[in-house]
Amino acid sequence: VPQRAWTVEQLRSEQLPKKDIIKFLQEHGSDSFLAEHKLLGNIKNVAKTANKDHLVTAYNHLFETKRFK
C-alpha cells in the first residue's frame, strides 16, 4: 500500500504541479478508480481537463477507499 506523498497543504499549493498528482494517481489507483474520476489517459490531457480541487478530492478518495492497483 502506498503512503501519502503530500500533506493537504502541499496538495493545495501552487508549488505542486497537477501532473505530479495525476502521475501518482495513475501509478497507484485501480483502473476502475481512475475511470470513475476521469483520470485515465495521457497525463497532459488529463491535466488540461482536471482542476486541482478534483485531483485533491481523488487523491484523498484513493486513500479512503484503498482502491489501489
Score class of each variant (00 low, 15 high):
Val1Gly: 08
Val1Glu: 13
Val1Asp: 10
Pro2Gly: 04
Pro2Met: 05
Pro2Ser: 04
Pro2Asn: 03
Pro2Glu: 04
Gln3Leu: 09
Gln3Ala: 09
Gln3Arg: 09
Gln3Tyr: 07
Arg4Met: 08
Arg4Lys: 08
Arg4Asn: 09
Ala5Glu: 15
Ala5Asn: 15
Ala5Ser: 11
Ala5Pro: 15
Ala5Met: 15
Trp6Glu: 05
Trp6Met: 05
Trp6Phe: 05
Trp6Ser: 06
Thr7Tyr: 03
Thr7Cys: 10
Thr7Lys: 03
Thr7His: 04
Thr7Met: 03
Val8Trp: 06
Val8Pro: 15
Val8Lys: 05
Glu9Lys: 05
Glu9Arg: 02
Gln10Phe: 07
Gln10Thr: 04
Gln10Val: 05
Gln10Cys: 08
Leu11Ile: 06
Leu11Asp: 02
Leu11His: 01
Leu11Trp: 02
Leu11Glu: 01
Arg12Tyr: 15
Arg12Met: 15
Arg12Ala: 12
Arg12His: 13
Ser13Cys: 04
Ser13Met: 03
Ser13Arg: 02
Ser13Asp: 11
Ser13Leu: 02
Glu14Trp: 08
Glu14Asp: 14
Glu14Leu: 08
Glu14Ser: 14
Glu14Val: 10
Glu14Ala: 14
Gln15Tyr: 11
Gln15His: 09
Leu16Lys: 03
Leu16Thr: 11
Pro17Thr: 10
Pro17Glu: 11
Lys18Thr: 12
Lys18Leu: 09
Lys18Phe: 05
Lys18Trp: 03
Lys18Asn: 10
Lys18Val: 12
Lys18Ser: 14
Lys18Ile: 12
Lys18Glu: 10
Lys19Glu: 15
Lys19Ala: 15
Lys19Gly: 13
Lys19Trp: 10
Asp20Ser: 10
Asp20Thr: 14
Asp20Ile: 14
Asp20Tyr: 07
Asp20Lys: 13
Asp20Phe: 07
Ile21Arg: 00
Ile21Met: 03
Ile21Val: 07
Ile22Gly: 00
Ile22Glu: 01
Ile22Cys: 02
Ile22Lys: 01
Ile22Phe: 03
Lys23Ser: 12
Phe24Thr: 02
Phe24Arg: 01
Phe24Lys: 02
Phe24Gly: 01
Leu25Ala: 00
Leu25Thr: 00
Leu25Met: 07
Leu25Phe: 04
Leu25Ser: 00
Gln26Asn: 03
Gln26Met: 07
Gln26Leu: 07
Gln26Val: 06
Glu27Val: 07
Glu27Asp: 11
Glu27Phe: 07
Glu27His: 09
Glu27Lys: 10
Glu27Asn: 09
His28Ile: 07
His28Leu: 05
His28Cys: 08
Gly29Val: 01
Gly29Phe: 01
Gly29Asp: 00
Gly29Ser: 09
Ser30Trp: 03
Ser30Tyr: 02
Asp31Ala: 13
Ser32Ile: 08
Ser32Pro: 08
Ser32Met: 09
Ser32Tyr: 09
Phe33Tyr: 07
Phe33Leu: 04
Phe33Ala: 00
Phe33Thr: 00
Phe33Cys: 01
Leu34Ser: 01
Leu34Gly: 02
Leu34Arg: 03
Leu34Phe: 01
Ala35Ile: 12
Ala35Pro: 01
Ala35Asp: 09
Ala35Lys: 12
Ala35Glu: 11
Glu36Gln: 12
Glu36Ile: 10
Glu36Gly: 08
Glu36Ser: 07
His37Tyr: 14
Lys38Val: 06
Leu39Trp: 01
Leu39Met: 07
Leu39Arg: 01
Leu40Asn: 08
Leu40Ala: 11
Leu40Val: 12
Leu40Met: 12
Gly41Val: 03
Gly41Glu: 04
Gly41His: 05
Asn42His: 12
Asn42Ile: 11
Ile43Gly: 06
Ile43Val: 11
Ile43Leu: 10
Lys44Asn: 15
Lys44Cys: 15
Lys44Ala: 14
Lys44Glu: 15
Lys44Gln: 14
Lys44Phe: 13
Asn45Asp: 15
Asn45Gln: 13
Asn45Gly: 11
Asn45Ser: 12
Asn45Thr: 14
Asn45Pro: 03
Asn45Leu: 14
Val46Phe: 05
Val46Leu: 13
Val46His: 04
Val46Cys: 06
Ala47Ser: 14
Ala47Lys: 12
Ala47Pro: 03
Ala47Asp: 09
Ala47Arg: 14
Lys48Gln: 14
Lys48Pro: 06
Lys48Tyr: 12
Thr49Phe: 14
Thr49Gln: 11
Thr49Ile: 13
Thr49Glu: 11
Ala50Met: 11
Asn51Val: 09
Asn51Pro: 07
Asn51Cys: 09
Asn51Lys: 09
Lys52Pro: 03
Lys52Leu: 07
Lys52Ile: 07
Asp53Ser: 08
Asp53Phe: 06
Asp53Gly: 07
Asp53His: 07
Asp53Tyr: 07
His54Asn: 12
His54Tyr: 06
His54Thr: 12
His54Trp: 10
His54Pro: 02
His54Lys: 12
Leu55Met: 04
Leu55Cys: 05
Leu55Gly: 00
Leu55His: 00
Val56His: 02
Val56Ala: 10
Val56Ile: 15
Val56Asn: 03
Thr57Gly: 08
Thr57Ser: 11
Ala58Val: 05
Ala58Trp: 03
Ala58Asn: 02
Ala58Phe: 04
Ala58Cys: 08
Ala58Leu: 05
Tyr59Arg: 01
Tyr59Gln: 01
Tyr59Lys: 01
Tyr59Asp: 00
Tyr59Cys: 02
Tyr59Leu: 03
Tyr59Ser: 01
Asn60Glu: 15
His61Ile: 10
His61Glu: 14
Leu62Lys: 00
Leu62Ala: 01
Phe63Leu: 03
Phe63Val: 02
Phe63Asp: 01
Phe63Trp: 06
Glu64His: 07
Glu64Asp: 13
Thr65Ser: 11
Thr65Arg: 09
Thr65Val: 05
Lys66Arg: 12
Lys66Val: 05
Lys66His: 10
Lys66Asp: 05
Lys66Thr: 06
Arg67Val: 06
Arg67Ala: 12
Arg67Lys: 10
Arg67Met: 10
Phe68Ser: 02
Phe68Lys: 02
Phe68Thr: 04
Phe68Pro: 02
Phe68Asp: 02
Lys69Thr: 05
Lys69Gln: 07
Lys69Asn: 07
